[in-house]
Design a protein around this nucleic acid. Structure first.
Lengths: 252, 252
DNA sequence: CGGCTGATTGATCCCGGTCAAATGAGGTGG
DNA sequence: CCACCTCATTTGACCGGGATCAATCAGCCG
């Protein structure tokens, strides 16, 4: 459903995130902003933005809310393979492949921009730095995906959930969605379970363990991390993970 | 260690793989081939080609042997997050980020080509189709990475190992490394365990289960799959997985 | 022959899954 | 305002898949 009223502030997370990857010229920002505002959309909780098997004709950029990339097995088992936070794009360049290999669902009510493929291509063609920033985002996503593999394959439940919380925190920070040592945690325990490869029951018990250890406070959809270093410690969090966010621009 | 004698046939898997993604002009093939032959290297089993934290100054393309991308936790737990097969590149574009977030090890003796970053960039700049083919490869890799997430998070041991074998088979096929219903399986059970997130002991038992069910024959480093459909069935293998290999060129 | 690495087997334990039920927390209509 | 429904969280009891520990076996190489 298209939005009628377009508040320009909604695109800010996108600008913030991409700028952190590559310094964007004001022209680049302006044309990006324009393209985003042109295709605003909303999705309700539980709604698929795009489903496995669909052809990809547009790039979607999340402006607010949380999305989840997920895959399912025939018998219904679901794995959320990544979260998508405000400012991140869903499938930049995915159109280079033939069809979606996974689905994307709105885990909360969400506002996003849909940029048609041709539009997106011309946007990038006219601005190589912008293009590079989007590619960086894609690569960063791959790095996150790899960390999820070791999280699912080698960390035990407590470490796993702790790691996820640390990651969420570090990814929300650059778009200004962390307030002190708290952030919103608007998804259900079922979603967290599917992201960590645990059952809901055991996820719930793991949360209680984390609470009992004083590592997190989680209530009324708000997550507070009294001591991030302590939580990272419990998660075997690598100090270099997501450091990419901050240092990529130093490469060039 | 640089190679002295350069047999041009060694680059064939690369050409084959990239051609499957995008049709390459003969000029593109020739200049790629030239660049590859310029930087031939060898690695012995267990040797890291590049290690987490290293800056990325070159792109590596595997010509023969198997590589593994892996990450480790402080206490030594290791997760192989993906395999790299002949014809695939290790870290095309990884130089856009600041440093390696994972390591790459030779799981068997390997021959690969190292293309310096500047060289690689000019190669791509002169041939947009080649550039697109490399990007496709990167995206395809992300898709594989996502499948590994659900494999690790939601499949039980037997399904997990079965799925890995199916995947290996499907990935080796396009580079001509499958012979009938057999292919080489040159890695240790330890490597397979680290790829599937299992302990060596349990991996071994799972192999026996697969053997007992008649789903695989595995001896003398050779894997035979009498009935691929049956194995895929046991693996809850999605019919669309890796179909990308074959259909991407139809997009344009 | 001795040493090394990898495959295999046995015994035991426990983390995390499953099943089932209870409790809470909105949301809605009468 | 309450009865009712639905969905999310929580708790309890039990079970089993896979980890762990330890020993044995099989090649391979010097």
């Amino acid at each position: 459903m298209p939005l009628s009223t377009a508040d320009r502030g909604v695109v800010e997370p996108v600008i913030r995130r991409l700028s952190a990857l590559r310094p964007l010229s004001s022209e680049a920002r302006a044309s990006l902003e324009y393209a985003l505002l042109e295709g605003l959309q909303r999705a309700g909780t539980g709604e698929d933005l795009i489903t496995e098997g669909d052809p990809v004709d547009a790039v979607r950029v999340l402006l607010s809310g949380w999305l989840g990339r997920y895959k399912t097995l025939e018998d219904g088992r679901r794995q959320i393979v990544n979260f998508i936070f405000p400012g991140e794009s869903c499938d930049a360049h995915a159109y280079l492949l033939s069809e979606m290999d996974h689905s994307i669902v709105a885990l909360t009510p969400a506002v996003y921009a849909e940029i048609k493929r041709a539009r997106f291509e011309s946007l990038l063609a006219n601005n190589s730095t912008l293009s590079e920033a989007f590619w960086c985002e894609t690569l960063l996503n791959s790095a996150i995906q790899r960390e999820w593999a070791i999280n699912l394959g080698r960390r035990v439940a407590l470490e796993r959930v702790a790691h996820l919380f640390c990651e969420i925190f570090e990814r929300l920070r650059p778009v200004g969605m962390v307030d002190g040592n708290s952030c919103l945690m608007p998804v259900t325990q079922m979603d967290l379970a599917d992201a960590t490869g645990l059952s809901v029951v055991h996820l719930n018990r793991t949360l209680q363990e984390l609470r009992a250890a004083g590592l997190i406070v989680l209530r009324e959809r708000t997550l507070t991390i009294p001591n991030l270093d302590a939580l990272k410690n419990a998660a075997l969090y690598s100090p270099s993970y997501l450091r990419l966010y901050r240092t990529t621009e130093a490469v060039r």
